[in-house]
Design a protein around this nucleic acid. Structure first.
Length: 269
DNA sequence: GACAACCTGACC
DNA sequence: GGTCAGGTTGTC
């Protein structure tokens, strides 16, 4: 489900609701999503205060008094804060009971996501430390050299979290369209100017998506349970057969790098 | 690189 | 019935 803009929106909407709250109790209904396992969660979490929220790539980070929780939502995971009158969402697998009568529900229809409890330092975490740079912190020169590290298709490169963190299927397709680049174009064939343009539209599309509070294509809602609006601005994603907004040719759908990919064969070379 | 695997549901 | 889904990982 969520890519960088959605996780960022969850972070921003959840922060004011749960920072400063204390975890009173924990209800675990699906143990397999918890790392290292349910016993550690049950033993460690009650009594801890939520200090701050942050994000790295598509991972949401909750900083507690003693520990840190990492959430990876994969395709359909989500985290919502419930008021006393709110009914519990479907597919709730973990429920935090907080003070002030609040509940924090982790839901995940497809059960691909995971939550990890960490004791030690974040900086040498096996997953976090392997993530590529945040798009907003990436310079043209760094991006250009990442592109040349290994020659492969642009779509596969942009989806690779170890190259650049946070892009998924939607924003990859939208950025490649804005840049006028074909998803199968080889990374090392880009000129410096093309690379600079690609990086600039990546930042642009992510910023716009965050401003619109993410894309709600199907299930996604933010930390308050509200849908995002950026799906209305999508130019190619899920637009198979529709006219290209730039040239009018039909948008094509093709499986590329293992993912359903939408692009304009006329505008993207 | 392609493909299956992990799951449940929506849509044709 | 088959195909597809805001993701990642392990296997040829």
């Amino acid at each position: 489900m969520p890519e960088l803009p959605e996780v960022e929106t969850i972070k921003r909407t959840l922060s004011p609701l749960i920072c400063g709250r204390v975890i009173k109790e924990l209800e675990i209904r699906l143990a397999k999503i918890l790392r290292p396992g349910p016993e550690v969660f049950q033993k460690s979490l009650p009594g801890q205060k939520i200090k701050a929220l942050s994000r790295r790539g598509k991972i949401l980070i909750i900083h507690l008094t003693q520990n840190v929780l990492l959430f990876h939502f994969r395709m359909t995971g989500n985290l919502v804060c419930l008021s006393p009158q709110d009914s519990e969402p479907r597919y709730t697998h973990l429920l935090f009971y907080l003070d002030q009568d609040l509940r924090l529900a982790y839901t995940d229809l497809r059960q691909f996501g995971w939550i990890e409890l960490i004791k030690e330092d974040l900086s040498h975490h096996r997953i976090l430390s392997k993530l590529g740079p945040e798009p907003f912190e990436l310079s043209k020169k760094e991006f250009f050299s990442l592109l040349r590290a290994r020659d492969r298709g642009l779509k596969a490169f942009l989806l690779d979290q170890e190259m650049i963190a946070g892009l998924g299927n939607i924003y990859t397709d939208e950025a490649l369209f804005r840049a006028g680049l074909h998803p199968k174009r080889k990374t090392s064939s880009l000129s410096f100017e093309e690379a600079a343009r690609l990086l600039s539209v990546i930042k642009e599309v992510l910023e716009e998506a965050i401003r619109e509070r993410g894309s709600s294509v199907r299930n996604y809602v933010d930390g308050r349970g509200q849908r995002g609006n950026f799906q209305r601005q999508h130019l190619v994603y899920r637009k198979k057969g529709e006219p290209c907004p730039r040239c009018g040719e039909k948008i094509v759908y093709q499986k590329i790098a293992g993912r359903g990919t939408y692009f304009c064969p006329n505008c993207q070379k």
